[in-house]
Design a protein around this nucleic acid. Structure first.
Lengths: 183, 183
DNA sequence: GCTTTTTGCTTCGAATTTGAAGCATGTGAG
DNA sequence: CTCACATGCTTCAAATTCGAAGCAAAAAGC
């Protein structure tokens, strides 16, 4: 565990796996702590959960209204969970759900002015908090590297075959993976 | 500070904040995706949730039994949630709860052989998955840097004053923070 | 044109999570 | 010693989450 050993040595001290595991675990631990803190802050600041904040952020940055599926795909979230949260946000007057002209079954989710206001209300504190918790101990270079790394990781995982949120995306052609849930 | 000095003189293109925000969001998004995938895998492989896996891992790596509080503090988790999960794990025969000789109110949580077996059963696949999802697009150097960065972040946040899980840590003397839950 | 399949979303029930409240033990001050 | 408070854990009700099932619209096949 405490095997720091100046990494510059490039020696084959370890099969890399332990360091990978350590990085993996500390990554999840740190993010978990961060999420918790952020959740508390958002609740206190604007009485919304982090998921709701994410939804508002997605809608805010999108050029126009989004469908439920686009939202659920952006935020990692189950469809039913999104329906629930959208219900809450709509009841709170932060978003509106309406029919989509192109696709009769789709639901167009639109950010209301109140939603935009709320987002603007909580964003500064959110930024401040994330800076204090996450970026305080990091150099500008670290930030760049971190962003670069996680962007690659995200794109890699997004490109990966089947995501949990889309178990029905079974196309007619999936020739290479017949075995499933092998005991 | 790790002064890599690569993007040193590339100009003050942005006030850094946007890049920070981007790094922050992509970090949470990537981890979210990763967690989802891991969750699916653990469920299929050993019929446990990620939280339960974390608990087993903590117990496995600890020199001896841990108390509930130590577990809840390690894993970011509410006390009551931990009680619930410990109940499940105990019912499944993976851990044992017993009294602590030092402290009558504390509960000593011990990993059973079955728990150890299960951990060993799921660990290889877990490692394989994390490597495929997280480390595939990363160089060894990236892994080192990521581990380094996140370790610093974690330690920083652990050192930060009040954590969510400990709202009761109000001492008699708290001179600097009279305001609370300000509306 | 009509059936079959896929897609978008919601409803439903079960599982999980949380914060507040409660209980019992430890700790320190007087 | 005794009281007040802190700590460790659990119970409880309420909120959130997920997956499966269901329904309507669209796309594909024939």
């Amino acid at each position: 565990m405490t095997d720091h050993a100046s990494a510059a040595d490039t020696g084959h001290v370890q099969p890399l796996e332990p360091r990978q595991l350590e990085a993996y675990f500390v990554l999840l631990e740190a993010v978990s702590l961060l999420q918790h803190a952020v959740e508390q802050h958002l609740r206190a600041e604007g009485d919304i959960s982090y998921v709701q904040f994410q939804l508002l952020a997605r809608l805010f940055h999108a050029p126009g209204p989004l469908t439920m599926t686009q939202l659920a795909d952006g935020v990692v979230y189950s469809r039913s969970g999104l329906t629930y949260q959208a219900g809450l946000l709509e009841k709170a007057g932060l978003i509106t759900r309406g029919p989509c002209p192109d696709d009769e079954r789709a639901t167009r989710v639109t950010l209301t002015d109140a939603g935009r206001d709320l987002f603007h209300h909580v964003l500064p504190g959110h930024v401040r908090l994330s800076r204090r918790l996450l970026f305080d101990p990091l150099s500008d270079d670290d930030v760049d590297h971190l962003g670069d790394i996680m962007t690659r990781v995200r794109d890699h995982m997004r490109a990966q075959p089947p995501r949990s949120a889309a178990p029905r995306k079974r196309r007619t052609a999936t020739p290479a993976l017949p075995a499933e849930a092998a005991t």
